[in-house]
């Protein structure tokens, strides 16, 4: 079936199976920034924004996004660079596999909640697992990014 949606503000039409998930569709079309860590919506690595809300794309049927706006990390390159700067400042980046998903969830958090409390930040990002860092450095980096004007 043909599904038409906006990928980083550009209209695309992909021929997909009705039971195909968005992470699979995008990766099979060469958009490899979408990382699949578990394929069962438990790790957050495949996080994307659908109409500005973070979703785990391994569990979103591509057929369900007809007409919607999908943002991958390619759509927020400048913000991702800013987040990366703060991760580097805090020594929070290691293997990087979860990082593109983190960039998207942190960016969405900044747009959705103004001046979030630490609890709100943690609630927002807790679904994005990281096995490398000590987590504290990540949280500090995220806080520093959120403070940026």
């Amino acid at each position: 079936m043909l599904v038409t949606f906006y990928l980083n503000n550009t209209q695309v039409s992909y021929d997909v199976r009705p039971d195909e998930y968005l992470s699979h569709t995008l990766r099979s079309h060469g958009i490899k920034s979408v990382k699949v860590g578990c394929n069962e919506s438990t790790c957050g690595s495949c996080t994307l924004l659908v109409d500005d809300k973070p979703v785990m794309s391994c569990s979103v049927l591509t057929a369900s996004i007809e007409g919607k706006h999908v943002t991958t990390v390619e759509g927020i390159q400048e913000e991702a660079a800013k987040i990366a700067y703060h991760f580097a400042e805090e020594g929070a980046d290691q293997c990087g596999f979860c990082n593109a998903g983190y960039a998207l969830v942190v960016y969405a958090l900044k747009r959705e909640i103004k001046n979030p409390t630490e609890e709100q930040i943690i609630d927002y990002i807790v679904g994005n697992l990281c096995r490398c860092s000590g987590l504290q450095s990540q949280l500090n980096a995220i806080k520093a990014y959120l403070k940026e004007e």
Partner: peptide, 19 residues
């Protein structure tokens, strides 16, 4: 010293085995 690949990875470069 910032990690030399941190920014590129955060920006989603295709750099891992299955990519």
């Amino acid at each position: 010293t910032h990690s030399i690949d941190g920014q590129g990875l955060m920006q989603g470069r295709s750099y891992y085995t299955d990519d």
